[in-house]
């Protein structure tokens, strides 16, 4: 019996393309009204996972529900109730804004196409430019149009595949405000992204690498789960220091953030032992800090690489 509290509830999803095992035993639970962030390096299987959730791809194995509908047996029903925004702009560039929206509305078999499209255009603030070809829009406007088109049929779940790639910070912020507004009104959202600030705006996160889910939970839970210890170093000639630190056992990551270095280790004791001699011999200021979400992700990615590249 599907749990009504979950918009997405899947287990053991697998997908192969030829000999490539693209998604391995994916399990995911997204509550209704939740903004769920989906993170991972390029080629980690995020897009494939999203396509399986919206009925575009049939999983090789696994089970589960999307809006209470079976992901294997009811892809057609799922399509009707899910809005999917592709990674690449996938509306028709040789159709006008209005024609694109009308076409999508027809594909979903909507009743009042004219009024729905007009309402969507005015919400977008594009009523005046509705006769403009979609191909002539700037990146930010294309993204807005794409979001409007996948929400035209009033879906209960939005699947957004890197919706803000190549969009300026102002447009990104507007976009996220809109997403939060939608979630507040009950919409469930699964969004994949590479941006840390966006990840931190999600209610919950999942991190996937090499097709495998490595961590899931709130941002704080994901960071805590990695068990990292971090130090911040400030002072002069940081790049030389960074090179020196990287060669030490016990130091897993050294990352420059502007005028400071983040020195991170998976084992706090070992890290302390490794850096103590350096602290004493160089005139830098050292300060223990809370590891950031980015530290956590880089650590996750590195450990995943170690497992899969051997």
């Amino acid at each position: 019996m599907p749990d009504e509290n979950y918009a997405i509830d899947v287990r053991g999803l697998n997908k192969h393309f030829g000999r490539h095992h693209v998604v391995r035993d994916l399990a995911l639970q997204v509550r209704r009204g939740e903004i769920f962030g989906f993170l991972g390096p390029n080629g980690s299987g995020k897009t494939t996972s999203i396509r399986m959730l919206c009925g575009l791809l049939v999983p090789d194995s696994g089970s589960g529900t999307c809006l209470g509908l079976d992901v294997i047996r009811q892809p057609q029903e799922i399509k009707r109730r899910v809005g999917y925004m592709t990674q690449r702009f996938s509306l028709w560039e040789d159709l006008t804004i209005q024609e694109n929206l009308e076409f999508i509305a027809r594909m979903y078999g909507m009743k009042n196409i004219k009024t729905a499209v007009a309402a969507s255009l005015s919400r977008l603030g594009l009523s005046d430019r509705r006769k403009q070809l979609a191909g002539q829009l700037s990146g930010g406007w294309k993204q807005r149009l794409a979001l409007a088109s996948c929400m035209l049929h009033e879906p209960e779940l939005l699947l957004l595949d890197e919706p803000t790639a190549g969009v300026d910070p102002k447009a990104r912020r507007d976009f996220w405000d809109q997403i939060h507004g939608l979630a507040a009104s009950g919409m469930s959202v699964l969004v994949s992204t590479h941006y840390m600030d966006e990840a931190e705006r999600c209610h919950k996160l999942a991190y996937i690498a090499w097709g495998k889910l490595l961590a899931t939970g709130t941002a704080a839970e994901v960071v805590a789960g990695c068990g990292l210890t971090a130090w911040e170093v400030s002072g002069s000639r940081l790049s030389e220091l960074a090179a020196q630190l990287r060669s030490l056992a016990g130091v897993d990551q050294v990352t420059a953030f502007g005028n400071v270095l983040h020195v991170v280790g998976r084992d706090g004791q070992k890290l302390f032992e490794a850096i103590t001699p350096v602290q004493e011999s160089t005139p830098h200021r050292w300060q223990p800090i809370e590891p950031s979400l980015e530290d956590a992700f880089i650590s996750l990615m590195a450990s995943a690489d170690q497992v899969f590249e051997t």
């Binding site: 919206c54 575009l56 399509k79 592709t86 509306l91 594909m107 979903y108």
Partner: peptide
């Protein structure tokens, strides 16, 4: 080629 196929396939058509 233009990537619009994905959009078409995501609809119930």
């Amino acid at each position: 080629e233009r990537g619009t196929m994905e959009n078409l396939l995501a609809t119930p058509a």
